[in-house]
C-alpha cells in the first residue's frame, strides 16, 4: 500500500465518520428519538431553510458578513503588522507601544462592543471596529514577538553584506519574522470571524449572525437557525483553510509547516 492510498484512505475514513454521524442524526429524528421541532434532522432543516429563506436574502446576509469580516480583518491585520514590526524594530517605539498593547490585550474584543457603540453608534463603524480589534491584537503580538525573536546572526549576516536601516528591516528582519506573522494572521482571522458573529448577534440588522438571532426572536424555525450555524461554520472553515494554503505557499517551503 503506497502512502498516497494511505492518505486517501484517511480521507475516506473521515467521510465515513461524518456521514455516519449525519445518518445517525437523521435516523434519530425520523424514528422519533429526537423531537424534530426542537432539533430537526439535516433534511428537515434544509427544507425549512429553503422554504423560509430566499436565495437573495441568504446571499445578502452572507455578503454583508463577508464584507464586514474582510474589511475589519484586512485593516486590523495591516495595522497589527505595521505597529508590531515597528515596535519590534525601533526600541524606543517598542517601549512606548508594548505596555499599551500588553495592557489592552487581555480584554477580549467582544468586551469592546459597548464602548464601540458609545464611540461610533450602532451602525457599521462599531462592528468594523470590533472586528478590527479581533485581528489587530493577535497580529500585533505575533509581529512584535517575531521581530524580537529574529536570530541576531541573520541580522549580522545582512549587515556584513552592506545592509542597514530600512533595507535590513525589509530584506532580512521581516522575512525572518514571517512565520510568526503568518501564525498571528491565522489566529487573527479566526478571532475576527468569531467576533463578527457575536457582533451581528448583539447589534446588527443584517448579516448571518443577525439572520439566526432574528429567526429565533421571531419564533421561527429551528431548522433555519441550524442551517445558519452550519453555514457560518463552513464559511469559517473554508476561509481558514484558504489562509492556511496561502501561508504554506508563502513560508511553507523554507519554514516547513
Amino acid at each position: 500500500m503506497s502512502a498516497s492510498t494511505l492518505r486517501s484512505n484517511d480521507l475516506t475514513l473521515g467521510v465515513i465518520g461524518t456521514l455516519a454521524v449525519i445518518g445517525f442524526w437523521e435516523a434519530a429524528v425520523r424514528t422519533g428519538l429526537i423531537d424534530p421541532s426542537v432539533f430537526p434532522s439535516p433534511s428537515l432543516a434544509i427544507a425549512a431553510a429553503a422554504e423560509r429563506l430566499t436565495a437573495r436574502q441568504l446571499g445578502e446576509n452572507l455578503s454583508w458578513s463577508l464584507a464586514r469580516v474582510f474589511s475589519g480583518f484586512v485593516l486590523g491585520a495591516l495595522a497589527g503588522v505595521v505597529v508590531g514590526v515597528l515596535a519590534g524594530w525601533y526600541r524606543r517605539f517598542g517601549l512606548v507601544v508594548s505596555p499599551l498593547v500588553e495592557l489592552l490585550r487581555p480584554i477580549p474584543p467582544l468586551a469592546w462592543i459597548p464602548l464601540a457603540i458609545i464611540w461610533f453608534g450602532l451602525g457599521e463603524p462599531s462592528k468594523f471596529f470590533i472586528i478590527f480589534l479581533g485581528a489587530f491584537f493577535p497580529v500585533v503580538t505575533a509581529a512584535y514577538q517575531g521581530m524580537r525573536g529574529v536570530d541576531p546572526m541573520l541580522l549580522r549576516a545582512g549587515q556584513t553584506m552592506g545592509l542597514s536601516g530600512v533595507p535590513l528591516l525589509l530584506r532580512v528582519a521581516i522575512p525572518a519574522a514571517a512565520p510568526d506573522l503568518a501564525t498571528g494572521l491565522r489566529i487573527g482571522w479566526g478571532l475576527s470571524f468569531g467576533v463578527l458573529v457575536a457582533a451581528e448577534l448583539i447589534a446588527a440588522d443584517r448579516g448571518l449572525g443577525y439572520m439566526i438571532i432574528a429567526e429565533r426572536n421571531a419564533g421561527g424555525s429551528v431548522g433555519v437557525i441550524i442551517v445558519g450555524i452550519l453555514l457560518i461554520g463552513a464559511l469559517n472553515l473554508l476561509t481558514d483553510a484558504a489562509i492556511g494554503v496561502a501561508i504554506r505557499h508563502w513560508v511553507g517551503r523554507w519554514h516547513g509547516i
Binding site: 484517511d10 468569531g194 458573529v197 461554520g233
Partner: peptide, 22 residues
C-alpha cells in the same frame, strides 16, 4: 481519530456564539 477528524475540525470552526439562538 481518522473517522472523527473532519467532524472535530468542523465543530471547532463553528463560531460558539452562533449557537446562542439555538
Amino acid at each position: 481519530d481518522k473517522l472523527s477528524a473532519p467532524l472535530i475540525v468542523f465543530c471547532r470552526s463553528v463560531a460558539t456564539l452562533s449557537l446562542l439562538p439555538l
